[in-house]
Amino acid sequence: MSATQEIEFRDAIRDAMSEEMRRDKRVMLIGEEVAEYNGAYKVSRGMLDEFGPRRIIDTPISESGFAGMAIGAAMLGLRPVVEFMSWSFSLVAADPILNNAPKMLFMSGGQFGCPIVFRGNDGAGGQLGSTHSWSVEGLFSNVPGIKIVIPSTPADAKGLMKTAIRDDDPVFFLESERLLGMKGEVPVGEDVLVKFGQACVRREGTDCTIASWGRPVHFCMEAAEALAKEGISCEVLDLRTIRPLDIGAIERSVRKTSNLVIVDQSWSFGSPGSEVAAQIHQRCFDDLDNHVHRVHAEDVPAPYAFNLEQEYLPNTRKICEAVRSATYNA
């Protein structure tokens, strides 16, 4: 067991970036307010002081420009980490991040790769309204050539970020504003990495598998706790990465529990949740006691009002209802 220390989610990301920047001078951080402002969400706090303005680079509000620029730099051999203050803003950079980065290796016949990390806040913050509350995994998981990482704990955030920076392919790293202040035990040390494509069992159970990723994992844990009091034993799986997707772990769990509820904060139509459901129906057809149940954001734009936003998002109540329905305890 390596030593751990209790730090915030945001500092775990910062430590991962700083350690990798010390290890490899080709790594640099670029984005809006990352340097002199110390990060819009204080994720890059202190990094300008340590690494200087040549490697911690402030940009104007110009996502299409700096995302494309970082991709060009990655083609030549740098390893940029690009901060989107919010993944909602990445939509104006859709062409570089979806049309350049994931296709460069393929359309150049393997000549030019794109070792780059795009990171930032994903999912609803707190009453940010319709345009700032995107869960982009719903859109971007459709695109081959990228890897998508969605950590739910500080320890995973650090370990997965380090893997992302060392990875030779484009990685979309989706953080949650609502988790940045969360504290947790994080391994100390440069070489504690979390592999991509390995789900983590957050809670063992026998009656129903709940598979999720990112912030909703915490709602799943609350739901599992509540359902245990009703006599329903839930196994909570945290997938941690969507591409690659550890479908084997879900499959093994479903063979044990015979039920699956997927909790995905993106919209349901054509989503990671619908992909997992299709895969599990195909792979575990004879093992399932019920069809796969899904809890998503409601199929409407994100609302502003507090009560509406709570109802819009996957929440503990909705997860409990889905599990009861799946296990015939409704």
Binding site: L105, K147, T163, D167, D169, R243
Partner: peptide, 20 residues
């Protein structure tokens, strides 16, 4: 080929993994 350089990341030890 050439969709990913390292489909599973440099640090995965899984044998013969598959990307969708």
């Amino acid at each position: 080929h050439d969709v990913y350089r390292e489909p599973w990341g440099r640090y995965t030890g899984t044998s013969e993994p598959r990307m969708y």
